[in-house]
Computed example of a mutant assay.
Amino acid sequence: MKIVIADDHAIVRSGFSMILNFQEDMEVIGGAADGLEAYSLVAKLRPDVLIMDLSMPPGESGLIATGKIKEEFPDTKILILTMHDDEEYLFHVLKNGASGYVLKNAPDEELLLAIRTIYRGETYIHPKMATSLVREFFKKDKTAEPADMFDLLSNRELEILPLIAKGYGNKEIAEMIFVSVKTVEAHKAKIMEKLNLKSRPELVEYALKKKMLEF
Results as ranks from 00 to 15, higher is better:
Lys128Thr: 15
Asp7Arg: 02
Tyr168Cys: 08
Gly167Ser: 11
Gly62Arg: 00
Asp48Lys: 08
Leu81Ala: 12
Tyr206Met: 11
Ile173Tyr: 01
Lys140Glu: 11
Ala189Arg: 08
Lys68Trp: 10
Pro57Gly: 12
His92Gly: 01
Glu122Gln: 09
Glu72His: 01
Asp75Ile: 03
Asp108Gln: 05
Glu157Phe: 01
Glu37Met: 10
Phe16Ala: 15
Phe137Cys: 14
Tyr119Lys: 12
Leu36Arg: 06
Gly31Tyr: 00
Thr76Asn: 09
Glu145Ile: 07
Glu71Met: 05
Met176Tyr: 04
Tyr89Asp: 15
Gly59Pro: 12
Ala10Phe: 03
Val181Trp: 01
Val102Pro: 15
Ser180Ile: 04
Gly67Leu: 11
Gly30Lys: 00
Tyr101Gln: 13
Asp86Gln: 12
Tyr39Lys: 13
Tyr39His: 14
Gly169Cys: 07
Thr131Ile: 14
Asp53Lys: 02
Ala38Thr: 10
Glu136Met: 09
Asp34Met: 06
Leu103Arg: 06
Leu113Val: 13
Ala207Asp: 05
Leu54Trp: 07
Val184Leu: 00
Arg135His: 08
Met149Val: 10
Glu37Thr: 13
Lys209Gln: 11
Thr66Gly: 13
Leu112Asp: 06
Arg200Asn: 13
Phe91His: 11
Ile118Arg: 02
Ile3Gln: 02
Leu161Asn: 06
Pro127Glu: 10
Asn196Thr: 05
Ser154Met: 08
Val93Phe: 12
Thr143Gly: 08
Thr143Pro: 09
Glu214Ile: 10
Ile69Met: 07
Thr131Gln: 07
Ile80Glu: 15
Asp85Ala: 14
Met192Pro: 12
Lys198Phe: 01
Ser40Phe: 03
Phe137Ala: 15
Thr123Leu: 04
Phe16Glu: 15
Ser180Val: 04
